[in-house]
Design a protein around this nucleic acid. Sequence first.
DNA 1: GAGCATATACTCGTGGCCGGATATACGGGA
DNA 2: TCCCGTATATCCGGCCACGAGTATATGCTC
Lengths: 195, 195
Amino acid sequence: MKYRRTNPLALAVLALLWERPMHPYELAATMRERHQENVIKLNYGSLYTVVDGLAKAELIRHVEFSREGKRPERSVYALTPEGRAELDSWLRELIAVPAREYPQFEAGISMVGLLPPDEAQLLLTRRAAAVEEHITALTTLTAQLKERGLPRLAWIELDYRMTMLRAEHAWLTSFTEATRDGTVDGHQFWVEAHR
Amino acid sequence: MKYRRTNPLALAVLALLWERPMHPYELAATMRERHQENVIKLNYGSLYTVVDGLAKAELIRHVEFSREGKRPERSVYALTPEGRAELDSWLRELIAVPAREYPQFEAGISMVGLLPPDEAQLLLTRRAAAVEEHITALTTLTAQLKERGLPRLAWIELDYRMTMLRAEHAWLTSFTEATRDGTVDGHQFWVEAHR
DNA sequence: GAGCATATACTCGTGGCCGGATATACGGGA
DNA sequence: TCCCGTATATCCGGCCACGAGTATATGCTC
């Protein structure tokens, strides 16, 4: 039976089990340690559902119940050959084919006309500030990672995100200015609608 | 009881009902007509769930069963004052506060090291081509909208998306080139891991 | 050595999203 | 006039995500 690629958390699970067999809690801990949870949404409930799903599709296999001292039983999973193939194929797809996604800000900005222009201006300025803060934080973080000897390839997703955030910031600034100066095409209508 | 802002489709519903009372099917049709479905994910199942939720929170109210000829019964909903307030407040939040989102490409690119560099290069090139096509399509579309006399404010979300796509394209090009030339920091390790 | 916070490890119930199924009406061509 | 494709309008069942809850073990402090 074919596996339905929904939750990218499943991809992370496959990738981690490719390194070595682990039990779910360990998967979560490892993702935390490597800051992967900033890139792929992680929470326990989903993790166990996802692991079950992968096991049902035989992409991973339940290999043992281990027990250390009197700790709770741990069920360890390992990657199967089919799982390895799925990891490869899914990853290729994620990279080569842009996914149809719906960023919330697009929804918001598409309705900005419902708010009066001066308020829109304020809100956009606030967003720009938040975005800038985020950029600063990422700059600091990447500098630290670099110092620790990690090559760019190891934090390439942060590099990508920074590029995108900078682009968003530039757009926000330019649109905010246009709103302030009244040079947005449609400004006349916008002002008149809010009186 | 407070409403849980999950599905942005609910925001679209509030915005449409602000114009005039409608029944769910009409909401969907209107969204289609205005190309809003490209910005906010729409499908019938979710729509009826969302409308129910809004009604339960009394942000919209069931005003009538109308019937035209022998067509199926239609249940028409209208915006309440609380709904109007919610629309405003939610919209402000969407614009001012960047939402924590998890674009799939970030997940993919973060694992690009699992693929051999030459293949990564190929996949990234394919993505760049797809992104470029998308940009071209948007350029044509916006030109048409402009011709029809629609001001930029009316398709501001397309403007935003084009900016973001261009930024992604530039990043893809630059990273692909670096991969080809072997100038990515970590290239040595990358090549050696795949032999 | 008692007590409390934290770490380990998993489970379960709720609720929301989705796609496909259903049923009727209308319009146009043979 | 009959048929078929499309438009109108809604409903339902399954699946999946989520976060809170549970239970034990370990370590740290006083």
